[in-house]
Design a protein around this nucleic acid. Structure first.
Length: 114
DNA sequence: GCCGTGACTTCGT
DNA sequence: AACGAAGCCACGG
């Protein structure tokens, strides 16, 4: 497939899943979003779990900034090693992560504007 | 068509 | 503040 093209598999995904992937790809550097927030921007406020599932299975397949996604509590939702990696990637974008893994949504949440 | 899964979220205790 | 239960929904590990 051409560079920048999401590929044929992408076209076969459910419309909501496609929207989710596009929203994730649009989160700017230095900002974060929540699973539920992405689901809402993608058109289904109830689809938070699907967002998580898609990240779990497709984050490696598409160029997704998976680390910019945290839960509604503003905290990292991954277990041990994954959490450490996510923290490192977030801090690399100047995003402050507290020792407990908490991020200030007031400051870093991307609200769709830019 | 049914069943389990999952990096979730909300509400009630 | 912490925990559990229930709701949620596309996907096929």
């Amino acid at each position: 497939m051409k560079d920048g093209d999401l590929g044929q598999d992408f076209q076969q995904l459910h419309p909501f899943s496609q929207a989710v992937i596009e929203v994730i790809r649009s989160i700017p550097r230095g900002k974060v979003q929540t699973y539920g927030g992405i689901a809402a921007l993608a058109g289904n406020p109830r689809g938070a779990r699907q967002v998580a599932r898609l990240l779990h299975s497709l984050s490696h397949k598409y160029h997704l900034p998976w680390f910019r996604i945290i839960n509604a509590q503003g905290k990292i939702s991954l277990a041990n090693e994954g959490a450490a990696e996510q923290r490192t990637l977030l801090e690399a974008e100047q995003i402050f992560v507290s020792p407990s893994g908490k991020i200030d949504l007031e400051q870093y949440l991307w609200r769709g504007d830019n």
